[in-house]
Design a protein around this nucleic acid. Sequence first.
DNA 1: ACGTATGCCGCAAACGTTTGTGTGCTGATG
DNA 2: CATCAGCACACAAACGTTTGCGGCATACGT
Lengths: 333, 333
Amino acid sequence: MDVTEPVTLKTLAGELGLNVSTVSRVINAEPGTEAKWASPATIRRIQELAHERGYARNPHAASLRTSRSDLVGVIVPRLQDYVLATIYEGIDAAAEASGRVTVVANSLDDPARQRLRTESLLARRVDGLIFGDAHQDSPYLDELAARGVPLTLVSRRRAGHVSVTCDDIAGGRLAATHLVSTGRRRFAVIAGARYASTTLDRVGGFLAVLAEHGIGESEVDLHYTGFDAPAGQRAIADILGTDTRPEAVFAVNDFAAIGAIGALQKRGISVPDDIAVVGYNDTPIAQAVNLTTVRSPMIEMGRLGFDKLLALIDKEAVDSERLTPEFVVRSTA
Amino acid sequence: MDVTEPVTLKTLAGELGLNVSTVSRVINAEPGTEAKWASPATIRRIQELAHERGYARNPHAASLRTSRSDLVGVIVPRLQDYVLATIYEGIDAAAEASGRVTVVANSLDDPARQRLRTESLLARRVDGLIFGDAHQDSPYLDELAARGVPLTLVSRRRAGHVSVTCDDIAGGRLAATHLVSTGRRRFAVIAGARYASTTLDRVGGFLAVLAEHGIGESEVDLHYTGFDAPAGQRAIADILGTDTRPEAVFAVNDFAAIGAIGALQKRGISVPDDIAVVGYNDTPIAQAVNLTTVRSPMIEMGRLGFDKLLALIDKEAVDSERLTPEFVVRSTA
DNA sequence: ACGTATGCCGCAAACGTTTGTGTGCTGATG
DNA sequence: CATCAGCACACAAACGTTTGCGGCATACGT
C-alpha cells in the first residue's frame, strides 16, 4: 500500500500542460491575487487538480529554496509545568493561525541544556525562538541576539530583549495589599528561583507594599526554592522550623502554594484561620482547591510572544509588554 | 551583524580542494567507518575545518534528497494535562537520544482537530506519528495505517495498533482491592471519557474486583466526566445529590481526585474518614496532597512509544506493551 | 499602420544535500 | 611484465521549490 507517487508541482504541471512555475505562482498567490499570474480558466484548472490530487507543498524543498522554514523554536523550563504548558498553548495557537509550526524543547532551567537544545533548533533552521526560561544571569540570550537570531521572551523578562510578561510587580503588590488589609502582619514568602524575573518581581512587589506599611524586609521570612508542589512542602518545613510562625504565606506559584497547604494541613494547621496562603497564576487546580491567588494571563502571553516574534522576523520594531494581573479571592486568604 | 555566509559542504570542499561528495561522506559516516571514504589525513582535515567553521548540515536539503525528515509528530489531547506532558517528555527524551526532533500538537480530544493537526504534520513530512489521544470509536487511525503512515499509540490503546500503555485493568484492580480490604462496600467512580481506553480499562478492572466480592455494577455510582479537577468537583456534586452516600470514590485521574477532595472538604466531609478517595497516575500533586493513588510509568510509556515507532519506521516487527502499575497508599484511603 | 502596453505563460538557475558510478593511481599478484 | 584489486577521490544527477527574466500573442492608443 501507499505506492502512490507523491504529487509534486511537476505532476500537476505535466498533467495540465503547464510549466511548474505557473502552477507554483498560482498556488502560492495570496488569495485574490491569482489573477496576476494566469487566466481565470487556468487558475480554476490548477486549483481543481491540486485539490483533487491532494497536492501538498514539500516544505523542505521550499525551505531550501527560500531559506525560511516557517518553523519557530520554543524553549521552556519544563512542559510538565502547567504554567509553561499553557503559555506554550498560546504560542502554538498563534503559530497555527499564522500557518507556522512550533518545535518545543525543555531546558530544565539548566543553562547548558538551554544552549544545547537551542543550537539543535537552530540547526533545524528555525526562523526564530521564544524563550520561557530566561535567566537573569546568563549571557547566552545576548549572544544569540548579537548573532542576529530573532527571539522573544515570555513569562520572564530580561533587559535588552523583547518580552511579554505578567506585570509581576503589580501581582506581588496585589497579594500583599490583600493580606495586609485583612490584618496580617507576619509574613513568609515561598519564592522560586532567583534567576527568574518572575520570582524577583513578585517578591519585590510584595515587599514594597509591606514596606509601605512599615514592615521591613528583614521581618519577612523569605525562602527561595522552586516552582512546584514539593518545593512548597519543603518551604513549609523550613518556615515552621523557625520560632515565629507567620500569619500568612505568599507563594509565587500555585503549585508551591498547594504543596504548602498540604504540608500545613498534615500538621493540623488550619488554612486560612491559622495561616493564610496566597498563590500565583490561578491554575485550574487553584480553583479546585479554593486557593486565593493572582491570575496571570498565560495564554495571552503566549499569543503575544509569538506575534512579536513574527514582527521581529519581519524586521519590524517591537516593544515589550506587561500584562495586567488580577487578584482572585477564594478561601485560603 | 550576522553577515557571515552560511557554511555549506561546498564551502568546506572548496577550501579543502575536495569535492563535496567526499566531504559529505566523511561527515555523515557513522563514527568509525570514515576510513571507507577517505585517507586518514583527509578525514582529519575535513573534520577539523568543519568544526572550525561550525558547519551544520542543512536538514531541509538533506530531507529533500532523502525524503526522510527525522521529524516525528506527536498528537496529544492537551499538553496542559500533566500526564500527557510527562509522557511527551519521555518521547522527547528518546527522540533527542536518537538525534530526531519531535513536533507536538494538541487535539483537545476532538476528532476533527486530531485529523487537522495530523494532516498538517504529515504535510511537514514527519517520518511517523505518536498518538496520545486514541479514541475507541474513531476510524481515522485505521485510515492512516492503511495509508502506510507509521504510528504508535501511548497512554491509550486501540485494537490493531501498536501501543504502549499502563496495564490499566490491573491498576483498577489495585484500587478496588485496597478499598475492599479496608472494609468499604459502597462505591462511586469518577470516570473519564468513554472514548478512552484508560477509562474503560481502569473502571473495568475496578468493577471486576468488586464483582468478585459480590458487589454488582448496578450498585456502583458511575460518573463519566473528564480528566481534570473541575470534572472531579462536578462529579462530587452529582454523587452527593443521590440518596446513598458512598464510602469510597475511585477517580481514574489524580486531578479529578483532587477536585473531588476539594469539593468534599468544602462540604465538611472528611477524607478518608467519611469518604475515601483514590486517584490514578501518582503525579507530584498527589504526593503533595497525600493522595492515595495508582502509579503509572508515564516517562517509560513515552520512551517506549518512541522506540517502537522507530522500529516501525525501520519496518521491523513490533508488539504492544502494557506496563505494570503500582499502588501507593497515602492518607486519603 | 505602427509602436507600445498588457496578459499569459515558459525557461532556467539556484538552494544544499546524497549517492550511483567512474577514474586515475599504487602496490601486489600470477 | 601484464593484470588486477583496492584506494582515494571526482563527476553529475536528482530531490521539489521559487523567482528573475523573457517571449509571444493580442489589444490599445495615436
